[in-house]
Design a protein around this nucleic acid. Structure first.
Length: 425
RNA sequence: GGAGAGGUCGCAUAGUGGCCGAGUGCGGGCGCCUGCUAAGCGCUUACUGGCGGUAACGUCAGUCGAGGGUUCGAAUCCCUCCCUCUCCGCCA
């Protein structure tokens, strides 16, 4: 979140960024509440100081009458403190709730525009494959290969679920392993994370309260299923002060992600592109504020590295102000070319969140043993989503008979250089 | 799931209503001494917020797992919750 103080000191910018995001936030109310908070705080702290002093004196008093008189007096002061304190609590509660609704400020370089139509392609890389036949979309290839079973997925779990089988299932796992291994080799530390988190954790990462309807929730034990590993990574150091010498801290994890997709009902209903449960290899970095832009570029490089080694055509987008996520100040997307569908498919989103999540999650770091604490910048990037990468591999490497050539780098993971049609029962 | 014990400053511990403005040890920082990576000595050692100040800093308030309560006054007493440990049961 932004602090009330920051909003006060950067009022014009904050309001302009809200406008550019095509959203609204209770900015004026926040300043009003912050004023009330300060006024009440001054009053209640003054009374507390008085009570502390007098109470101490009461402990020393010998004279019974004087003692009783002071106790009576302090009882009244106590009542006054209670009254002011409950007003203060109410004001602070509303202030916090309002601050939770304010998205991050925007990086000045973010393209301006109200919706995704204004995203800017900053680079297009690789040759789109030239087919001597009509390339098929992945759901047809999945059918030919006996590798994607939509009907049985839907039978057991409902729409937007599927089953992978045989070579395709293995290809999906191979992609996951390749991604993890490459990032670990590049110096990222692998983590195994919880897939269910408490409500408090979802607030800290910025998912709640605004995006509740996209989350799966366990009513019995009040757990939330992670929509991305980012949520767990933010909470890894929640309420902690990271000791000197730890930054930048670069982490990677492979987790499933669960999303209700209520916002995009009816979109991308075919295939495995938009589903309720998918895998993601997530990159995350805690770094010093001065080098978060550099760190951002590094994460984008890591994400791009995967289509590079897989030989997949891709492009890099800079998200415009209206399309950028709540937590991010700047976001680049990586999209892979999917020739069967004839469209680019988003497989990564790299975001610099500055200190927005660090403030929300109360994360600080100590630059040196004797230095004052500061807030780190937090960044995340998918590196990548294996399920959607699978779409691109299938569609780019398909042969006329529906078989799939395996990219060189995946062969050690696959134990074969081709997936052939294999009809299951 | 059942029974018991416990959560205090980075770590270990002391602390059963005012002497806690949280002590001590270890660890960390700064300095001194000593001719040599040892030992010793002194000082220091958290975070959040308000107010004042350009600032260093000062000052007030809050924080002893969290939240309530009792009291003039709570680390200390009461209630609720969370977590950890031990034993039993169950279990991938």
């Amino acid at each position: 979140m932004l602090s009330a103080q920051f909003i006060r000191e950067n009022l014009e910018r904050v309001k302009r960024d809200m406008f550019l995001r095509n959203t609204s936030a209770p900015i004026d109310r926040i300043l009003e509440l912050d004023d009330q908070r300060k006024a009440l705080l001054g009053e209640v702290e003054g009374l507390r100081a008085e009570r502390n002093t007098v109470s101490k004196q009461i402990g020393q008093m010998k004279d019974k009458g004087e003692r009783e008189a002071k106790i009576g007096e302090m009882r009244k002061v106590g009542d006054r403190i209670d009254a002011l304190d409950s007003r203060l609590k109410a004001v602070e509660g509303e202030l916090r709730a309002k601050l939770y609704e304010v998205p991050n400020i925007l990086d000045p370089n973010v393209p301006k525009g109200p919706d995704e139509g204004f995203n800017v392609v900053i680079e297009t890389v690789g040759e789109k494959p030239d087919f001597s036949f009509q390339p098929r979309p992945h759901w047809e290839l999945g059918d030919i290969l006996g590798g994607i079973d939509f009907e049985r997925g839907v039978k057991m779990a409902g729409s937007r679920f599927f089953v992978l089988r045989g070579g395709v299932a293995r290809l999906h796992r191979a992609l996951t392993q390749l991604m993890l291994n490459e990032h670990i080799a590049a110096g990222f530390t692998e983590c195994y994370l919880p897939y269910m988190l408490t409500e408090e954790s979802l607030y800290a990462s910025g998912q709640l309260p605004k995006f509740r309807e996209n989350l799966y929730h366990d009513d019995e034990d009040d757990y939330y299923f992670i929509p991305t590993a980012e949520v767990a990574f933010v909470n890894l150091y929640r309420d902690e002060i990271i000791p000197p010498g730890q930054l930048p801290m670069r982490l990677v994890a492979h987790t499933p992600c669960f999303r209700r997709e209520k916002m995009s009902a009816g979109r991308d209903v075919r295939g495995i592109k938009r589903v309720h449960q998918f895998e993601k290899v997530e990159l995350f970095s805690y770094c010093e504020p001065e080098r978060s832009e550099e760190e951002f570029q590094l994460l984008v490089q890591r994400a791009r590295f995967i289509p590079e080694i897989l030989g997949l055509p891709y492009r890099v987008l800079s998200l415009c102000s209206g399309d950028i996520g709540f937590n991010a100040t700047k976001t680049y997307d990586i999209e892979l070319w999917a020739p069967g569908q004839g469209e680019y498919v988003e497989v990564s989103s790299a975001s610099n969140c500055l200190d927005f999540q660090a403030r929300r999650a109360n994360i600080r770091y100590r630059p040196s043993a004797d230095g004052a604490v500061r807030r780190p910048h937090l960044l995340n990037a998918s590196g990548l989503a294996p399920g959607r990468t699978l779409i691109a591999v299938l569609e780019n490497y398909q042969q006329e008979d529906g078989s799939i050539l395996i990219p060189e780098v995946l062969r050690p993971y696959m134990g074969t250089d081709v997936i052939r049609p294999e009809r299951g029962p």
